[in-house]
Simulated assay, not measured.
Amino acid sequence: MINIQLEGLKIMYLQEGATWRTLGAINNNDGTKERYAALLSAQMSGKPVMVEYLQDGYDCGKVDYGTPAFLVRTYQ
Rank of each mutant, 00 (worst) to 15 (best):
M1C: 12
E7I: 13
M1R: 08
L54H: 06
G57R: 08
N28D: 10
L6M: 08
I26Q: 04
Y58L: 13
T67V: 04
I4M: 03
A37H: 02
V49K: 07
R21Q: 15
P68D: 06
I4F: 03
A37S: 08
L40E: 15
E7Q: 13
A37R: 11
L71Q: 03
A69Q: 03
L14R: 05
N3G: 02
M50V: 10
T19S: 11
W20R: 02
I26T: 09
E7C: 14
K47R: 15
T22G: 04
Y13G: 01
G46N: 11
Y13I: 01
A69K: 02
V72C: 00
N28F: 04
K33F: 03
N29R: 07
G8N: 10
T19L: 06
L9F: 05
N28S: 05
G46I: 11
Q76R: 13
G57I: 07
T22M: 15
L40G: 03
T67L: 03
T22Q: 15
L54C: 10
D30S: 05
A25R: 03
P48Q: 15
G17T: 07
N27T: 10
M1P: 13
G61K: 08
K10T: 01
T67A: 05
D64P: 10
K10A: 09
T19R: 15
Y65H: 06
Y13E: 01
M1E: 07
L6A: 06
C60H: 04
L40A: 09
T67S: 03
G31N: 10
V72S: 01
F70Y: 05
L71C: 02
V63W: 12
M44V: 13
I2K: 06
Y36A: 05
V63T: 14
N3C: 05
N29A: 11
Y58A: 11
R35A: 05
M1K: 10
G66H: 11
Y75I: 02
G17Q: 12
Q43V: 00
Y75P: 02
G66V: 02
V51Q: 08
L39Y: 04
L9C: 00
N29Y: 06
E34S: 13
I4V: 08
T22H: 14
I4T: 08
P48M: 15
I11P: 00
E16M: 12
M44I: 13
A18T: 11
K62A: 14
N29M: 13
T22N: 13
R21Y: 06
G8E: 06
E7Y: 12
L54Q: 12
E7A: 15
L40F: 01
E16I: 07
T22I: 15
G31S: 11
V49I: 15
R21P: 00
K62F: 11
T19E: 15
K47S: 05
V72M: 00
Q15N: 13
D59K: 10
C60S: 02
E16V: 10
T22R: 15
E7H: 08
D56Y: 05
L71T: 02
Q43I: 02
W20K: 04
D30R: 02
A38W: 01
P68A: 14
T74S: 07
Y53K: 05
Y53Q: 09
E7M: 12
D30W: 05
I2W: 01
Q55S: 13
Q5C: 12
K62Y: 10
L54E: 14
A18I: 00
S45Y: 07
K47V: 05
L23Y: 04
S45T: 15
M12C: 08
E34P: 01
T32C: 09
M12H: 09
N3P: 01
P48C: 14
T32S: 03
V49R: 09
